[in-house]
Amino acid sequence: MHQPGSGEAVSFEEQFRQHYTFLCTVAYYIVEDEDAARDVVQDFFLYCWHKRHLIRITHDFKHYAVRAVKNASLNYIRKSGKTQLEEIHVIEELTRYFPLEDEEEEERRNKALWAAVSRLPEQRQRIFLMSNRDGLKYKDIATALDISINTVKTQIKLALQFLRKECGWMARMVSFLFFLSRW
């Protein structure tokens, strides 16, 4: 099926390109698996494509898409059978805090995070990114860099502590969670 030459079809592709990356990070936050995140987001867009003549988004496509992808991601981990019910409950709680609805603020946070990452000492930054961006296991990082697994864990811990301190918004979220979890 090819895109009809209408303006709407073109805008579908634009929508996809604009939001795909961000939606994948939202899905990843929940499913913690790159391929699963891609599948969830792709399925969402396939759904939109087939319903493109029916769906009329009221105000904001992104807002709608984030909601749908969050729900689909939670469904995915429920159905995958790998995650315990309590774990799902915790993850569900977490989804209240990421992402935000405010796009500008989202952008600021990404920027702030990358800037803070760039201020990490070289080795710590490398280890942190290998783990958190590239998804390598601690033991694989230890092997690759010829250091002990405990050094890897210590470096990641120090990086996380530093980044939380540097990125003020996380502190704000922390206090939210704190009160929430007392219930």
Binding site: L94, N110, C167
Partner: peptide, 22 residues
């Protein structure tokens, strides 16, 4: 829980490069 939330958020944000739109 708070530290985990922050860490997962960072992880998700840092993953953006793994999902190029093209």
């Amino acid at each position: 829980l708070a530290a985990l939330a922050a860490a997962r958020e960072m992880q998700a944000r840092l993953k953006a490069g793994s999902f190029p739109a093209e």
